[in-house]
Write a protein that binds this DNA or RNA. Sequence first.
DNA 1: TTGAAAGCGCTAACAT
DNA 2: ATGTTAGCGCTTTCAA
Lengths: 351, 351
Amino acid sequence: MSGITIRDVAEAAGVSLASVSRALNGGKNVSARVARDVAAAADRLGYQPDFLARSLRTRTSGMVGCLVSDISNPLNATIVKAAEARLREAGYLLVVASTANDPGRERAAASEFRGRRVDGMLVAPGSDANAKAWRALVAAGTPVVIVDRDVPEADDGADNDTDGWPSVQVDHRGGARAATRYLIGLGHRRIALLTADAVMRPSRERIAGFREVFAEAGLDPTGAQLCLQSSAMDFAHGDTLALLGDGKDGGRPTAIIALGTRILAGVLRAARDLGLAVPRDLSVMSVGDTDLAAVHTPAITALRWSLEDVGRAAADLLLHRLGGDAGQAQSRALLPVDLVLRDSCAPPAVV
Amino acid sequence: MSGITIRDVAEAAGVSLASVSRALNGGKNVSARVARDVAAAADRLGYQPDFLARSLRTRTSGMVGCLVSDISNPLNATIVKAAEARLREAGYLLVVASTANDPGRERAAASEFRGRRVDGMLVAPGSDANAKAWRALVAAGTPVVIVDRDVPEADDGADNDTDGWPSVQVDHRGGARAATRYLIGLGHRRIALLTADAVMRPSRERIAGFREVFAEAGLDPTGAQLCLQSSAMDFAHGDTLALLGDGKDGGRPTAIIALGTRILAGVLRAARDLGLAVPRDLSVMSVGDTDLAAVHTPAITALRWSLEDVGRAAADLLLHRLGGDAGQAQSRALLPVDLVLRDSCAPPAVV
DNA sequence: TTGAAAGCGCTAACAT
DNA sequence: ATGTTAGCGCTTTCAA
């Protein structure tokens, strides 16, 4: 272990503890001689300050907690990575907790973070279950930035407005609108939206955008199929088979929008199993752009947004709050979504 | 903020500070009455112990640092996630640092971790550049587990043996052997190994296994092409084009082993661009099994190993050391690699 | 400009 | 079984 304390440095440099502290922290009121001697002594001894002790004294840990449902999800991982890079530049350490979307673990992790005295938290709740807990957290004064999520109004009738929360959001609604318009423009009328979730903000917004476009085009909204499945882990394979394979050609969708990589994977596998050619027999669009979408044959048209920007924006918002602008108006970032045209969408075959 | 200290609880419960500490830490020598009163008071006040203060006193932070080159890489992320889960069960908090394979940042992160007084570290060095630093770390007594990497012998002639380090390794060599045997069994004689790296342990072991099989089959090792490229980021697209597209049919490989997802993506794109059908015109194998490999048409035969096991094993090894068996013989885990047969490999076409 | 001293919240001797 | 006390290593008044 290091074992070398500030006291050792003080002795070696022949000055007092306080002087060492001041010198090392670049504080004022340090003579050039002391500064030099202290630096030399610290260097020679290989002194490394103890963050723990410093934190105890200053009441700031220099740590930021990050609550994310599943860090092995490449999307989340990319966000976390970008946030971590930014936070580190600012001298903060990121501690992560994968919560597996379990509200209990989410609360436990948040509590653990508080006990560890993190200076702030980045949180992407896995559900709305803990909305109350998040509100309590900010109410207690913890700087919190919500990432790509909503914190629904408390159902106890409190006058909290969720829109005012410091958060970074992605314009999923706008993206879904663009995607839907594009498909309708190609001539599609029966479009299936495959999602594993309909309550979280991203899915909710996408569904809303999808419906908006159908409504504004004067199309029968029942032509828009919405397929909800409980788990994305089965790759949406079964659902897609059921959706496409029932033979009722009049009702069979001519295009599928897959919300997420796993679902896209399931859709593509199902199409392959059914002998359906993309895009001739079925147009496929991916919400979220990954290697899979880019490299597949044919390459999959996708909705894309910058995960790095999400992470960076989240870190910046938090740093801003940690920087002292606590009372500052609640900032909120809204990031754009782009439609990347590739080869997986075409006009529907005339039947 | 919490603001409530152990002192407040002591007053509320009408006992001494020490009793509260004992009661809360489930120590011995606590009467039922005190235990009850303390628990009640703590609960009522919403007391949350301050880890920072506790750590300062006990000289253990309950934190484990994780050094990984790029956490947005799904492989790394999965490992980290599994390790984090295990560590949390044991009461440790994982702090991560993405080092982008930059030796400087790696050292800086390690140093930061030490300053933060992490109890141990999980490290997957991005290169051999910091071998000396890692040795210094363990020499200083920090429990370190190396993940899927080697720490080469110090070049200063010290008598450190790298094989004794606590580490979790993957049997990449065995996997490569199985893969190569399989391809040779199909009739392939010209096989290209595409990798972005030839020095790190995983690649080195794979290349070694590949060569071993060629040698043991009595085949001309020059028939085994080894293509090194500097970056995986261009999806290996250009390299594959150059490799396949040069028209010299006699030298063109009939099978490609792609070391990594990005490279696989590049290979597949290149094959598509050249109008080569997989596996008719070209057999493709992936080292590392991802959605891309599983879902591609045709599905890609792949080498797979459990990333979860890697993360868990790393955590277990470290926990074991943290548990006090510091002097214990250096343990080392070796995890198996499986060949997952799919549809992307076939006998080479007769020319 | 420098040093002495108090104390952050907690645990662990040591005493009772 | 319980209380008293002394720090862990650092920052930060407050004096000098």
